[in-house]
Design a protein around this nucleic acid. Sequence first.
DNA 1: GAGTTTGAAACT
DNA 2: CAGTTTCAAACTC
Length: 795
Amino acid sequence: MDTPDRSKINTPLSQFEDSPVFNYISNLSPIEPVKSVHITQTFNSLSFSSPPSVFTSPHVNCHRESRFLRRHNLLDASKGKGSSEDINNVYSCEKTPADSTQPCHESSEPQENTNPNISIRDASIEPCDENPNISIEVPQGLKYNLASPGYEPVICADEADSLLELPGKPGSDVSYVPDDSEKDSIEGEMHLPALCQNEEKIEGPNCGVDDLINEASDLLMFSPPNMKEAFKDINKQLNPSTKLTNLRTLLRQSATNDGHQMHIVDTVASGSEHEIENHPCESGAATDTVQRQDKHNNVALVASNPIEKVDDKLVYVTHRGIRRRCLDFEMASVQRKNLDGKSNTNSSAEKSDEMDVSKGKQLLPIKHSGDSRKCVLPGIGLHLNALASLNDCKNIKIETLLSGRQPNLPSSSSSLQLSASQDHQLSLVPTSVEKDMEQSDNEVQPGEDCTQPLVHMPGEDCTQPLVHMPGEDCTQPLVHMPGEDFQQNSPKKKRRRLEQDGEGESCKRCNCKKSKCLKLYCECFAAGVYCIEPCSCRDCFNKPIHVDTVLQTRQQIESRNPLAFAPKVIRSSDSVPEIGDDPNKTPASARHKRGCNCKKSSCLKKYCECYQGGVGCSISCRCEGCKNTYGRKDGSVHSGIEAKPEEETEACERGVMENASHKTETQNTEDHLDHALPTTPLRLSRSLIPLPFSSKGKPPRSFVTTISSSGLFVSQKLGKSSAPRSQPKFEMPVQTVPDDDSPVTCIKTSSPNGKRISSPNCDVGSSPTRRGGRKLILQSIPSFPSLTPHNLRSD
DNA sequence: GAGTTTGAAACT
DNA sequence: CAGTTTCAAACTC
């Protein structure tokens, strides 16, 4: 693949050089010509792909997440194929990411984050978000290229700078690359004009270069592999052509910087692709390295790319979509990396891997996080898991707070039906989540065990690794990743540890033997998450491969009980304690949706879902001899959460307490940091929460809710600040506001009898439910812009 | 690690 | 809707 392209590229370049036009352009700004060409290709591919991706079914989401694969595929595709829809999707996704990176918004993040990791995360994350939004965004990307000048030359320039000068070089390369892509002659034309415009605007000395660089970087983002080739060719050609002094300088810089650029670009574009990034980084060292990288990348891509096989695709995609899946997917890469790292000294490729590890420690982790997140998003669409996992991760890190977002995920998943609207929602959710995640990750890493994140990254399963990492052996995830079956790992121990830590729940690990992980017995499935390696389940169908089965099963279950996947615990207090109180008579801030039915555990053990969720029992509970430390059914314990400490004797409680303290601390810190970092969102997302909104949480709602939820969380933070919560499972009320609220209220309202309320009806609207809705709504309203819809709904 | 307890989920 | 069974987590040893 590469070879032919290179040859192609070379010829065009030489031609350009010879042409007077080329000279003229070079004089003005060497980049321009290149850009025009390059852009055209990129856009073309992107533009075409993007729209489909957006509208595509849930799978699309997954694809989005699987940027790596996509990229790889894209690369391959661009070189040779580029036929499959998936590929197109990938492109679109990539585009969006790239675009995102380019655009001031996205780019700003990377820039802002001095830490490579952060930048990467953001980049990776952003794309996902954007993707969802996307349908439109893709066009934006195009627009950007075309209209980019208008879009914000200044910002772009800044971004470009932030991206590094490297991009500039790459950009040149990129431009060449497009040339290579003979495909888009037409597009090329289109782009050219745009480029011209850009150039004109750019005409400013600095601006021109920066812009070019930016664009180039963008291009690179889109097609890293091409970039490499382009670089090679460019270097060769450029060097010969003395005319392009600027280019030379750029190239020289690029030689040193390439690695950085590549990293950035790759990270941003691919998000997850360690491999790619690594390669680029290595390549940065020397052009030769670039070639190697190209090969290496290809290899990696091939290996990693599941796309080749449909099943593989699904798997990978889903994985990305889902943390766990990401683990699998990434695991392979990780293993590779690890292997490379170990043996790496020899091969450049290996070096690249090492680069990832060493250099990238920051990057990798970030990337991983980002990837995982990304994956999550897709996963979300397919399965709630992703979200949950994300949340889990966040929770793990922060462990504190909020729960909020997962619900959204579930809802989306619950809907399963992937309507365009849903997609959008999904996209939205992910974005917020991702941001949060990113933030959290960023923050967390530093604060926590940075090492862990690094470790995780590879596997990423944010859920576990993150959790484990800190306390346990971060390495485990890696180990698992490789492919093992979690079975080997003792899930119980892990769970216990996690639980003790206080947040084990976030990382769901099941041990199902007969349910095939397709029933609510399975925690993973119930949480809307795919089973991961750590799981010791048997005959597990709760895997990306069996997406269809999972979805169908979910639908069936939801048909029976719309709230089946809804978060079991609702926290009213988090966002707005006061509001939360309403629903329940019980003091506890949060309430279990259905309420427990404990008879022997006195609601003092994890057998009790309320206790397990860190919430007090409510009227809806039918428990006997309730002694729930978080709040008794009779309401004796008012501040259930606060009360916890009293009775809590269990390690879990301890963990909770600790977590709570940590949470409070983290929250406080985060709150302070919120401005700088999106920590808040992170918290939210991390908060755990699993997922479950689905129940009724219809995807669309989740959408809205998610957005609003973030706001809610924010408000919560501000309002409550520290109230520690130990709610592993719960999701959050706020986010779910619409959905959850109804259910919650229903629960509460219905609960009087003491019987569980399945409450499908409740959602609709019993008066009581309205209350819950109101509360939630109120909370959400302030926080989010999107509130309007909610309000309307609530109304 | 194996076995028991527990309560939710699923089934009738 | 109630009762029973199934299931897997939680817990104990």
